[in-house]
Nucleic acid binder design. Structure first.
Lengths: 213, 213
DNA sequence: ACCCTCCTGTGATGCTTATCACGCCCAAAG
DNA sequence: CTTTGGGCGTGATAAGCATCACAGGAGGGT
């Protein structure tokens, strides 16, 4: 199957035996762009490894405000899914496919078993945590210290990197939602960025020209 | 020794054999109030379990701004120390004792060994991550969505809980630093809180009367 | 063609918070 | 006693952003 070579490429650090098991028991699940992989309060029964695509992980509060946490890419895993799965807790987060996405779901029971058996799995879990933690701290820094114009730039850079594209097909309204701002403000800031030659604005789409400042 | 009963009480979930090892190899280190346990860029060579006291974990950027992350209490462990130790990385965070504090340092080599050997240790590491992650998310929520007055209340509640005391001996200047605000603003907000009967202001000290709102 | 909806641009206004500029009190040091 | 420095209170001012109000354009459906 196609998954075998993909997993092998993405998870080279796994011991051969572990890799084989991952391929055997991992359940491939596909999601369309914009589809939700996980929603607040949902029970988690498996750890999620990303095979292809991009997953946006974020939080939403009672009033519909959202906090962006980080994006997940192929070869990465969702830290939340790991702990919550391990402890049978419901998640407090949302995960949404930004493009068509493919993940590998590992049943929770095996997580524990593997951790005790395969050093590379344990290391992988730890590394997953470490990276997500770092990313979350980075997000925290930006929200705490940066003004909206810098955060907007950061948003654009993130999407450019995650989607490997200079075209972002998102409405200002959605960008505003993600940055906890308002459409009008984003509109004005985008205009400034366009004037400075960093972006070019199209209908329903932002083209990134040059974000070096 | 005194540590034996303390560790037993705090880490009941550990298997007896693991508990014994923890007591054998754990190095007890004491810190005075206000002392730093860890500073940005410092190499980490052991995981830290808190035995007594309170540790404030936070970040500091180039310009001296700080972001509060969470407080650690007896029975808890520093997630950062765990991953960084495991991967021999330097920390990007600061940790400071809020009161006289006692910790148990576990050499990094044993972390890996125990993870493969003791289910309860692996569970403990996972749980540590999960809790710190949750706390970090909580902090993120507050910074992203709450106004300064609510964040000040949150700050007071945290200290009340962590220090188990209704008296906070901290200058407004320091509180402002922690909340990324300015002394004047804290002064005005405190006055409001005092007028509403939530706190009573003393020289160099805030007395918490009632934070229920 | 027409309507309807979604996306965008722009001015006006006000809230929250940062910053500046003082002056006051108190305590420790000279 | 006087000086000095740290903590505090308070007004004035301004930056950053949210919100409201309104208008125009583009596209899809009927």
């Amino acid at each position: 199957m196609a998954t075998a070579s993909t997993t092998q490429r993405l998870f080279q650090q796994f011991e051969p035996e572990l890799l084989k098991k991952v391929q055997q028991v991992g359940l491939v699940r596909k999601f369309k762009a914009e589809e939700y992989l996980m929603q607040t309060g949902q029970q988690i029964r498996s750890a999620v490894l990303v095979l292809d695509g991009v997953i946006k992980v974020f939080r939403e509060d009672d009033e519909g405000n959202e906090v962006f946490m980080y994006n997940l890419h192929p070869g990465e895993a969702c830290a939340i899914s790991m702990t919550c799965a391990a402890r049978q807790l419901s998640s407090q987060i949302m995960a949404k496919a930004l493009v068509d996405t493919e993940v590998l779901a590992i049943p929770v029971e095996l997580m524990d078993e593997w951790a005790l058996k395969y050093r590379s799995w344990y290391q992988f879990v730890l590394e997953t945590y470490r990276s997500r933690f770092e990313e979350l701290l980075d997000t925290l820094d930006h929200i705490a210290f940066r003004n909206l114009d810098e955060r907007l730039l950061w948003y654009l850079k993130q999407h450019q990197k995650s989607l490997k594209s200079n075209f972002i097909k998102t409405s200002f309204t959605d960008i505003a939602l993600e940055l906890n701002s308002s459409r009008e403000v984003i509109s004005r800031l985008m205009k400034k960025l366009a004037e400075k030659g960093h972006v070019k604005l199209h209908k329903n789409e932002v083209e990134i020209l040059n974000l070096k400042m």
